[in-house]
């Protein structure tokens, strides 16, 4: 999918400049692109970098109504907002905007309940693969081999497949997107906004501070994650998976850019041994094999 730049340019600026995000922050690109696509958004944010980059009270960098709330309360708070607004006849787009820690781990029970009730919410998870704002601890999204402050020798387990867990809830719309392809991301958010019920969008959002990468290559890392097959792009609509045009060809391992090219640009992977790289390639293939079964 590809949105028109002219359309994107006409949208309001939702993230005011001069905020606390690190230089080259992937989450900032994800936020600007996604939230600007929505009409009258109300954004619910659990503890994460997104609560920090709003900056210091009473000044806020987020230019839309925002509720900061306890970690595991995001989707329940959003459920209440969505229902109250509906009763009042007010048309809004209620959003959960969470990091991977707040979606893969803490708060999982909360969103699972909201998804089961099919609440009218768009749940975004910007995935920077770890708990960044508390100083780079591992999360369920951290890939095998990545060094974090709690996995100093590299994580031993593979990352979990949050979209497949989400898919088991039979919600109407799930999509993956990347800040490497902002027009695809914008188009998917637009599409999600036309659907009713619980919708989930997972966004690959590189974090130069925690990935120990050059801030200038943040979008390139997003692209490489797709091109190496590490982060497949797809939508799951009413249970049917469709690979996105941008990423479809990487289902064939022959077409993939060597994974090493992605890993070598991030110092969090510098302790990886060749046998661990083989393991990660197997993790990637395993995920694709599981996704293909949902087609």
């Amino acid at each position: 999918m590809k949105a028109k730049i002219t359309e994107m340019m006409e949208r309001p600026n939702v993230l005011l400049r001069g905020n606390f995000a690190c230089a080259g922050c992937g989450l900032s690109i994800a936020y600007r692109t996604s939230i600007s696509a929505l009409d009258r958004p109300i954004v619910v944010i659990p503890a994460c970098c997104s609560s920090v980059i709003q900056s210091l009270h009473p000044n806020v960098a987020f230019n839309v109504p925002t509720l900061n709330i306890a970690f595991a309360a995001h989707a329940s708070a959003a459920s209440g907002i969505a229902r109250a607004k509906k009763m009042r006849g007010e048309e809004v787009t209620t959003v959960v905007w969470s990091g991977d820690g707040g979606t893969y781990d803490i708060g999982l029970a909360t969103w699972s309940g909201a998804a089961e009730r099919n609440e009218n919410i768009i749940h975004f998870c910007y995935d920077n693969n770890f708990y960044s704002n508390t100083g780079a601890q591992r999360s369920g999204a951290t890939p095998r081999g990545a060094v974090t402050t709690t996995t100093p020798e590299g994580k031993k387990e593979k990352r979990k497949s949050i979209t497949r867990i989400m898919a088991a809830h039979d919600i109407p719309y799930i999509a993956t997107a990347s800040i490497g392809y902002p027009r695809d991301l914008y188009a998917k958010v637009k599409k999600a906004s036309t659907i009713e019920g619980y919708r989930f969008i997972l966004i690959d959002a590189p974090c130069p501070t925690g990935w120990l990468s050059d801030p200038a290559i943040t979008p390139e890392l997003g692209e490489l994650a797709v091109k190496t097959g590490y982060f497949p792009l797809y939508e799951i609509e009413n249970g049917n998976l469709i690979f996105s045009r941008k990423g479809e060809k990487y289902r064939d391992p022959e077409n993939r850019v060597p994974l090493e090219e992605y890993l070598s640009k991030q110092n969090r992977f510098k302790k990886m041994t060749p046998s661990q790289i083989v393991e990660v390639k197997k993790d990637i293939q395993h995920e694709w094999d599981q996704l293909v079964r949902l087609e």
Binding site: L16, R17, G18, N19, F20, Q54, S55, L56, H57, P58, N59, V60, A61, F62, N63
Partner: peptide, 10 residues
């Protein structure tokens, strides 16, 4: 604890 959108909040 209500904040307001501000340019250059940091």
């Amino acid at each position: 604890p209500l904040g307001r959108p501000t340019l250059g909040s940091a």
